[in-house]
């Protein structure tokens, strides 16, 4: 039922193929991302869910080619609108950033330069022609529900929610085809979180950019995502469509259990994980904690696509299709 090759091309904004990222230290290199495969299509809200340290931010930074110096992309392809950005130079990449792809970060106050006004931030974010700059900036602010007067103000004079709205205004000002949102609501309270999510969704429905939404909150992802990727220790272990099917990877099931209140499974999660990166590449990353493991799980498990949109990295890949 599952295919090793995915079929059916749709409008793919972002496609990541066999991406592996290492962190190079003095004596050794540690595998941070391992054979990542996924794509994000036009206008969809793709949610990436994973626990802290699973490599979500690393993946986001890989996509805009802004990894810290110690990180190296070992292999793979990252296609934005069909162009492999790993093969283009820094100057061309700068033309893509903010224009075709933009990103919103976790803690907005840290990502706004304290010495410059909101207006100055917006102006340098805009890459288009100068004539309609002013109107477009006001329009972008209006779109995120902020007054045009906010331009004269400095970042520290705004609340966290307002700052995040400014980040969103900057992200959408050039009408990018994809917006990456890396845990954009983690630093915000529940109500502001709701507002920011609604805003992102409204923008998606109006301008049709794809949104690559990173979160550690599966419940939130289930509510808002059109597709969900589950990440575990540098691997995407499953991609599924909420509403159409339940995830079937054992780790995804554990995550689902936590939001359904099955605390028996939670204990498993706290068990110390003792695998090092070399072993991790050889066997299933979830091997030590998996309750359903078999002897054959001790070899490399590839990610396989079940259809054009969903896939899994598990030998037990008979997908549960009831809603």
């Amino acid at each position: 039922m599952c295919l090793t090759q995915k079929t059916g091309e749709m409008e793919q904004i972002l496609e990541v193929k066999n991406l592996s990222v290492l962190r190079v230290e003095k004596t050794e290199s540690i595998s941070i991302l391992n054979d990542i495969n996924f794509m994000v299509k036009k206008g969809e809200m793709f949610c990436l869910v994973g626990e802290s340290g699973s490599g979500k931010t690393t993946l986001a930074l890989s996509i805009i080619k802004l990894l810290p110096k110690s990180f190296k992309i070992a292999s793979g392809e990252i296609l934005i609108n069909g162009k492999n950005i790993l093969e283009i130079n820094e100057q061309s990449m700068r033309n893509i950033r903010g224009k075709d792809i933009s990103i919103i970060f976790q803690d907005p106050s840290a990502y706004l330069d304290p010495l410059f006004t909101i207006g100055s931030h917006l102006q340098e974010s805009y890459h288009g022609k100068n004539e309609n700059k002013k109107e477009l900036i006001s329009l972008a602010l209006q779109e995120v529900g902020l007054d045009s007067e906010v331009q004269t103000v400095y970042p520290h004079q705004l609340s966290g929610g307002q700052q995040q709205r400014v980040m969103i205004a900057m992200a959408l000002i050039n009408k990018p085809s994809i917006i990456i949102a890396d845990e954009p609501t983690t630093a915000l309270d529940v109500l502001t979180t709701r507002q920011v999510i609604d805003l992102l969704n409204a923008i998606r429905l109006k301008h049709n950019p794809a949104i690559f939404f990173i979160t550690h909150d599966l419940e939130l992802a289930m509510k808002t995502g059109t597709r969900i990727g589950i990440m575990y220790r540098g691997h995407i272990v499953e991609i599924f469509k909420p509403g159409r099917e339940k995830p079937s990877h054992p780790y995804a099931n554990i995550l689902l259990g936590t939001i359904e209140g099955k605390d028996t499974i939670l204990e498993l999660n706290f068990k110390k994980n003792t695998m090092d990166s070399k072993q991790m590449q050889q066997k299933c990353p979830f091997f030590d904690m998996c309750v359903e493991k078999e002897a054959r799980c001790k070899k490399t498990i590839p990610f396989v696509w079940c259809d054009s949109e969903t896939g899994i990295r598990c030998l037990k890949n008979g997908r549960n299709t009831q809603v």
Binding site: L66, R94, I96, K99, A110, Y111, D113, E124, S125
Partner: peptide, 21 residues
């Protein structure tokens, strides 16, 4: 700092990132 990373991510030219931010 994060705000310099964010400036790169917005496609701000190199000289602006270095000298402005």
């Amino acid at each position: 700092t994060p705000y310099v990373l964010a400036a790169w991510a917005r496609g701000v030219p190199r000289n602006s990132v270095i000298f402005k931010h």
